[in-house]
Design a protein around this nucleic acid. Structure first.
Length: 510
RNA sequence: GGCGUGUUCGUCUAGUUGGCCUAGGACGUAAGAUUUUCAUUCUUAAAAUCAGGGGUUCGAAUCCCCUACACGCUACCA
């Protein structure tokens, strides 16, 4: 076992879009596998046919492609342990359930859902909880209380039945968790879980153990919500006589406010994505935002998620996937839940945008330009991106920040005008405009010096004049350094805009 | 209710073999600088008596016990 290359799996249910917490679970599995030279597989757990959502499986695969996390085996890839979709493995499970019954680790139960409901309600009235366990199973309708012939007859006649696990009475079950250490629970506290459903499908528990074993999974890395059922799983391995994989139960991802588990609702409420990709619900038609569509770079999402519950112990915060793989270890995972922080997510994105060259950013920006229907020259656009990149947290902000490089302002901020535009400003702007166009070929430094000298020599109010100039170019008192903008726009365009703003503010009374 | 897990600045966390912790970093916040704006960037500051209470010890965030709180599970869902 020790010298074996680890094999880990990510095993989502196709019941909807992949939750960002699930993405983190997958990421940790990936990092662990790659760090140790092992394999990372994708298994689809679709044993609950009532919850199947069309498109969910494709969504999951696309999400990981976008994130750059590659599976070595699994749905959509293949591999020697397939099929990797549980619905396609359906015939495999029944013999295992039967084996358990034969060996005395399980039994057939004929209790109807209605009768179980009634039992639970009855117990509730007495402020107790009904549990199908060693203390109650002998008073239920199952193969332990029925004769062998009766049991056989019922099954043969097609009466619905389930197979339940039969816990040995009063036994301490030890789960060794790589993150939490030893967790011990007594079997009397556990109820006889259904392993095989009346619809002929296994439940998660059976399918999971059978698949993990037959797929030679060495480490089960999953969310903390599975910790309570881990004892069942170790008992199942024992019942089958199989060597159990190692378990690691990850802390939960919490909502930014309050303490609960992060949910889809929180995203809608607080305005941030909880899904990697935008999701269109096929039933309700509802659209949920995705990280990709919001403008997050996949590297940033991976980096942010990696640090939500794990830390290499250094002060480094920015990691490439390769660095993450290199540094990752299970024992550095924290035990407590981590709250998702929108601010930190944005900060990561900003950092990753800065690491991209303007060329790499081009596709994001041209998409926006096309959407706006604005024509552009590639070289010009590249120059603008170079200049504006540092201000962007999301590529989508480009137009708002840099649109004036492509379209002259038609409106001017009244507030900024009020603050900066004084009596006689129009005349001064014309002088500056003249100064700018004095050189045959625009020389940014020379123009800058000339304008500044003139302003000083005439004791003009620098803030008022230069900001008014800026308002004419941008539309408001914001944006990059004035002469740099002029250099990119060209003096002809600046001349036009200057005339336009003077006209707009002071009217045609020149 | 039962069972399980957890608890260091507002948030993510460092700290894990007790002393170098007057508890470090990052995000966010505040102030200042970058002598035209906004943003970026930089600097500085405020911010955790380590959930609370008991121990053990010369010495505890680090070990033990109790309490509180939070979260998870408690389906023929995963």
């Amino acid at each position: 076992m020790e010298n074996m290359k680890p094999r880990v799996r990510f095993a989502p249910s196709p019941t909807g879009p992949l939750h960002i917490g699930g993405v983190r679970t997958a990421l940790y599995n990936y990092l662990f596998a790659k760090k140790n030279g092992g394999s990372f597989l994708l298994r689809i757990e679709d044993t609950d046919q009532t919850r199947f959502v069309p498109g969910a499986e494709e969504y999951i695969i696309e999400a990981f492609q976008w994130l750059g996390l590659k599976f070595d085996e699994g749905v959509g890839i293949g591999g020697e342990y397939g099929p990797y979709k549980q619905s396609e493995r359906k015939p495999m499970y029944k013999p295992y359930a039967e084996q358990l019954v034969r060996d005395g680790w399980a039994y057939y139960a004929f209790d109807t859902p209605e009768s179980l409901d009634a039992k639970r309600k009855e117990a509730e009235v007495q402020k107790k909880t009904f549990q199908y366990d060693a203390s109650t199973r002998m008073s239920m309708v199952n193969s332990l209380t029925l004769s062998a012939e009766e049991t056989e007859k019922r099954i043969a006649s097609g009466e619905p039945f389930v197979v339940r696990f039969k816990y040995p009475a009063d036994t301490d079950i030890h789960v060794h968790d790589l993150i939490r250490g030893e967790v011990v629970i007594n079997s009397n506290l556990l109820d006889d879980k259904v392993l095989y459903k009346s619809d002929g499908m296994p439940t998660y528990h059976l399918a999971n153990i059978v698949d993990d074993h037959t797929m030679k999974i060495t480490h089960v890395i999953r969310g903390e919500e599975w910790l309570p059922s881990a004892p069942l799983h170790v008992m199942l391995y024992k019942a089958f006589g199989w060597e159990a994989p190692q378990f690691a139960h990850l802390p939960l991802l919490l909502k930014p406010d309050g303490n609960g588990k992060l949910s889809k609702r929180d995203g809608d409420r607080l305005g941030f994505p909880v899904f990697p990709l935008e999701w269109h619900d096929p039933k309700s038609g509802e659209v949920s935002s995705g990280y990709r569509e919001t403008g997050y770079l996949p590297e940033a999402v991976v980096n942010m998620l990696a640090l939500l519950g794990w830390n290499p112990g250094t002060e480094q915060e920015i990691f490439s996937l390769d660095e993450l793989v290199n540094l990752f270890s299970l024992d550095k995972i924290s035990k407590s839940g981590a709250k998702f922080s929108l601010d930190k997510a944005k900060w990561f994105n900003h950092e990753y945008i800065q690491m991209k060259s303007s060329k790499e950013l081009m596709p994001y920006i041209t998409k926006i330009m096309d959407e706006k229907g604005v024509a552009y020259e590639e070289d010009y656009l590249l120059k603008v991106i170079d200049l504006m990149k540092e201000r962007l947290t999301f590529p989508g902000e480009f137009w708002e920040q840099a649109g004036f490089f492509f379209v002259a302002p038609t409106e001017y901020s009244a507030q900024d005008l009020k603050k900066r535009w004084k009596e006689g400003t129009g005349e001064k702007l014309r002088v500056i405009d003249e100064l700018l166009r004095k050189d045959e070929v625009f020389d940014m430094q020379a123009a800058h010096d000339r304008v500044m000298e003139h302003i000083k020599a005439n004791e003009w109010n620098m803030g008022a004049v230069l900001n008014s100039m800026r308002i004419g170019i941008v539309g408001c008192a914001r944006g990059p350094e004035l002469f740099t903008m002029i250099n990119i726009l060209g003096t002809d365009e600046v001349h036009k805009r200057t005339e336009a703003v003077i006209n707009a503010v002071e009217g045609g009374d020149n």
